[in-house]
Design a protein around this nucleic acid. Structure first.
Lengths: 258, 258
DNA sequence: ACTCTCGCTTGATCAAAATCAAGCGTGTGC
DNA sequence: GCACACGCTTGATTTTGATCAAGCGAGAGT
């Protein structure tokens, strides 16, 4: 599918491409095409060779991994963000699988074009480094989240993060099915239910996808959110829910779709 | 401490700098200095602003994190490799603490010089992107390792990875204290002992830092090592034990100091 | 030699999470 | 309407890992 002007300008304005010069931008997008996928489509399996950088324009995609009949969700991508950038830069195989959670619109940029553009424009290349560094830091947060907190604490922090991102109101909307959320938070759906039940002591009440946070102070006391693990300030997100607010000394960064 | 020629040429030859042009290399290292630290020195705490890229030339350093009086080891760095590159690229605060496990020799490169060098030389900047992508993929492996395997499986895979890296012999030497290893593998020292005990069924016997792997096939049956999680082929390592064998289509990559 | 410390192990107990097994409610398709 | 599937919840049970509490053995300092 051909790329329309609207898409081009949307992509031109994401942090990755904003600083690129016109010829590098044109070079990167040469051979790129737009594709639409229904929900539940597998875009990429673990171990596949990666030929394109994916840029999610609409919809949602899940990055996951599996081993010995277990599987887990590593991140959920929301527009506008790129994914599998690291594999593209190294021209190597995918370490994660990717599949659409909703009907999605994805711009597919040939890896070779992207790498050539990087080598032709140091500013663009620097932006790619920044993006990768942001992804890396998002993952560091994720590892800390998993190694240092138990499942109830992870859920409590997830709720507070969503609250911050959804405007600070005391009622939030879970953006995904609970089973997906459970997998993202590293637990079973059963335990997610139980974790919600435990948090009723902190004023949390659930009705479908709606969650009321009744006693924020109590919830914060349990969750102890930390800017070194949680990023409450991301909105446009990349591979790991990473915001580019990160740019700029001292500002908040990173983060954890989880 | 001034930088000697030997150090300069060692650094010049690591993947990060090999492709840089001479002026970018000189620019990056302008203002760099060499420093020696005894074992147990804290180099950096979580949340500190990061002014230097660290390049470990000798010794070993532990990257860790803590929350609510718990702490964990995220990675162990061995020469020659860089660490906290991501924070330097984004000029932001450290998400991990760093401290020496042994007496260490570290080259400290001012962040600002590094960023200027990146912007002046697209090839160098590309190498930084590759390095970051490798770090990122190492962390992805780490997350998979933790979310998909239980502690005994992690230990079994760790042993097989060490075996491969130490030359394939059936006796390996644990490179760190067991308590550090336990933290890296995401368990308590007590449970590490018990995990070793369980693996005696797979022919594993421990004597201090020496570990005999008596029945490799049995151990592999339990461990089910996967190239998408474990990297058996790394030797020179970066922030996450990442090897730059990764470069080059199709070759193995990533990995998991853990 | 003698303690002291320290790293490690072992056992007993406890807490957290996975698993197994129903059941409930809503929406879809027939 | 009715059956069915599906996502979610709840309870019972098992497994896994953490915590608590000794104890062991090697090495350092006195």
């Amino acid at each position: 599918m051909p790329i329309r002007n609207t898409e081009t300008s949307r992509v031109r304005n994401i942090p990755l491409f904003r600083g690129a010069n016109d010829s590098a931008f044109a070079m990167a997008l040469s051979g790129a095409f737009l594709q639409r996928f229904p929900a539940g489509t597998t875009l990429l399996m673990e171990g596949d060779s990666v030929d394109f950088l994916y840029i999610l324009l609409e919809g949602a995609v899940e990055l996951g991994a599996s081993w010995k009949s277990k599987d887990t969700t590593l991140a959920i991508i929301r527009p506008v963000s790129t994914f599998i950038l690291a594999a593209v830069v190294l021209d190597s195989d995918a370490l994660m699988s990717a599949s659409t959670l909703e009907r999605s619109e994805i711009l597919m940029v040939p890896g070779e074009s992207l790498r050539r553009a990087m080598k032709s424009d140091a500013n663009f290349c620097f932006a790619v480094s920044e993006e990768l560094a942001g992804c890396y830091r998002g993952l560091v947060r994720s590892v800390k989240n998993h190694k240092l907190r138990d499942s109830t604490e992870r859920l409590a922090n997830y709720l507070l993060t969503q609250r911050a991102r959804q405007g600070g109101k005391d009622t939030i909307l879970l953006p995904h099915e609970k089973r997906v959320l459970a997998s993202l938070l590293g637990m079973t759906p059963e335990n997610l239910s139980r974790a919600f039940a435990k948090l009723s002591a902190q004023g949390v009440s659930v009705d479908g996808a709606q969650v009321q946070l009744g006693k924020i102070p109590a919830l914060e006391r349990l969750a102890r959110p930390s800017p070194l693990i949680d990023n409450h300030y991301a909105q446009p997100k990349n591979e790991l829910g990473e915001s580019h607010i990160e740019r700029g000394k001292g500002l908040l960064d990173g983060v954890a779709a989880l």
